[in-house]
Write a protein that binds this DNA or RNA. Structure first.
Length: 474
RNA sequence: GGCGGCGUGGCCGAGUGGUUUAGGCAGGGGCCUGCAAAGCCCCGUACGGCGGUUCGAUUCCGCCCGCCGCCUCCA
């Protein structure tokens, strides 16, 4: 049984499903107003790994992740670029899924959109207003945080100390009564997209969609609500507050992943403007290197991604590919049970992927030290761990090199056969200059693309995305 | 100010009250090789500082120093 840190509990606890054999999880998805950045890459990989692991252990996992397709930043970009908000949202959503494909993140079971749930959100808001939990302010409808007991659970603070620590003045014009209150419904300004409501035409506040969509698709008391640590407060707290006020049972467990930080150790965030584009990183390195680096840090720790850390991960991926080529005949046979058991022990301990990956690297070493069926079983465990569970495919086949390169390889073999080392070395240098790694094997000269191949294409044919160059990461 | 986290060898990064090491990357030496590459073997005696508990602490406790997060939009 997997044990996972629970933010509300402040401790690691067994993750027992609501219904035996089934697992329901909700992860806060993106606001599609810009390019995916490194932080997006991290949270998607982290929860994708949890989802894959639970599935692999036999659970039927229902994984819901929303798309916020109506929000202030989308409107701002649409206005700036002379496009409609719908165009902006659909453009960045398409880019979002294309990018996740590249880092091996599976599609959620469901991807509800905020704009498809406006009716349900209005029903909830009405219920909250009727129950005395929400009030009409100058710019919209606000939730009164002090109207429920236990506000501050996820921050592990009392509402008094949260108010005392508020960094932002209460906006008198908006008619917000307390800094901890938050918008449920925002009245539309001239020209903004809007939906009719009893309080005037407007659009939903961000915190409401997740409540409605998670409860609608997963039901009361669903198993896990996860997301970035920066969402724990106030976003998740505000979701929980609405559910509590509406008399619903919300998520049974809460989990949060750590932040990507810059080289100075500071969190990448929109307000600091120090976010790095995930797309640029994926264009410059094997996308699997990003996934491996995320796996090589504990999901709750801050992680710094830089050229040197990604290069190190890329070198490790290359080693794994070499291993996969060497043991390609081990695919499909029964994995060594000891290796799998040790791997699971680490995963079950609060998703300790760095230690779990270390088990796999140990297995790489021992498979090579061993021989025969035993070596192949251990190798099969390596495949099972990386490909069957962690979503990191190993490449044991390379696309057929072009005929010209093969001809050079053949010529080199001929030179070597007549012990013409000078000519053989000359051809090798030519091949290397063209971006090939040259190895002498039992079948003669073998070539495969190096990571810095001039043609730049991955064997899987990944192409750079088609975003405009002037877009900034957000 | 309130609440929380972190400080491990050149870099990244797990873990543990003590006997033999996490793991990855980089580096040094060696084996293999026509020379390489890949692979294999060996190596460098890491746990912020000061006290305390203990037979023994990197691991527990206290204090200090440093860094970071949340209390505003954010994954």
């Amino acid at each position: 049984m997997l044990r996972l840190f629970d933010t509300a509990l402040g401790a690691v606890a067994p993750l027992e499903p609501r219904q035996p054999g089934r697992f329901s999880m909700y992860v806060c998805g993106p606001t599609v107003s810009g390019e995916p950045h490194l932080g997006h890459g991290r949270f998607t990989v982290t929860w994708d790994v949890l989802r894959r692991y639970l599935t692999w252990t036999g659970l039927d996992v229902r994984f819901v992740s929303n798309v916020t397709d109506i929000e202030d930043k989308i409107l701002a970009r649409a206005a700036a670029e002379g496009r409609s908000p719908e165009e902006v949202a659909s453009h960045y959503e398409a880019l979002w899924w294309r990018t996740l494909d590249r880092i091996g993140v599976l599609r959620p079971t469901e991807t509800p959109h905020a704009t498809a749930y406006v009716t349900e959100m209005l029903e909830l808001i009405e219920r909250l207003v009727d129950g005395g939990h929400a009030y009409m302010g100058g710019n919209g409808v606000y939730f009164a945080a002090d109207s429920i007991d236990g506000y501050g659970l996820l921050a592990r603070q009392s509402i008094e100390s949260l108010i005392a620590g508020a960094r932002v003045e209460v906006d008198e014009d908006a008619g917000k009564r307390s800094p901890t209150d938050f918008a449920l419904w925002k009245l539309a300004k001239e020209g903004e997209p809007s939906w009719p409501s009893p309080w005037g035409a407007g659009r939903p506040g961000w915190h409401t969609e997740c409540v409605v969509m998670s409860l609608d698709l997963l039901g009361d008391g669903f198993d896990l609500h996860a997301g970035g640590l920066d969402l724990s407060f106030p976003h998740h707290e505000n979701e929980r507050a609405q559910a509590v006020a509406a008399g619903r049972t919300f998520a049974r467990r809460w989990a949060h992943n750590g932040m990507i930080v810059d080289q100075g150790g500071e969190k990448m965030s929109k307000s600091l403007g120090n976010t790095l584009s995930l797309l640029e990183l994926l264009d410059a390195y094997d996308p699997r290197a990003f996934r491996l680096q995320i796996l090589q840090a504990h999901y709750r720790s801050p992680v710094s991604v830089s050229d040197s850390t990604i290069a190190a991960a890329a070198a490790a991926v290359e080693r794994l590919d070499n291993f996969a080529r060497e043991f390609s005949d081990a695919r499909g046979i029964n994995p060594d049970e000891d290796v799998i058991e040790r791997f699971c022990e680490r995963m079950d301990d609060d998703l300790d992927t760095p230690a779990a990956v270390a088990v796999a690297f140990d297995a790489v070493k021992s498979a090579r030290a061993d021989s025969g069926d035993r070596a192949r079983a251990v190798a099969a465990a390596v495949f099972e761990i990386f490909e069957g569970v962690l979503g990191l495919d190993l490449h044991d086949q390379v696309a057929g090199p072009p005929a010209a390169a093969l001809a050079q390889a053949k010529e080199r073999d001929e030179a070597r056969a007549r012990r013409d080392w000078a000519r053989a070395d000359e051809i090798r240098a030519e091949l290397q200059a063209d971006g090939w790694i040259v190895e002498d094997g039992p079948e003669g000269t073998a070539i495969r693309p190096s990571g810095t191949s001039p043609d730049g294409t991955e064997p899987d044919g990944t192409q750079p995305d088609g975003t405009q160059p002037d877009e900034t990461g957000e």
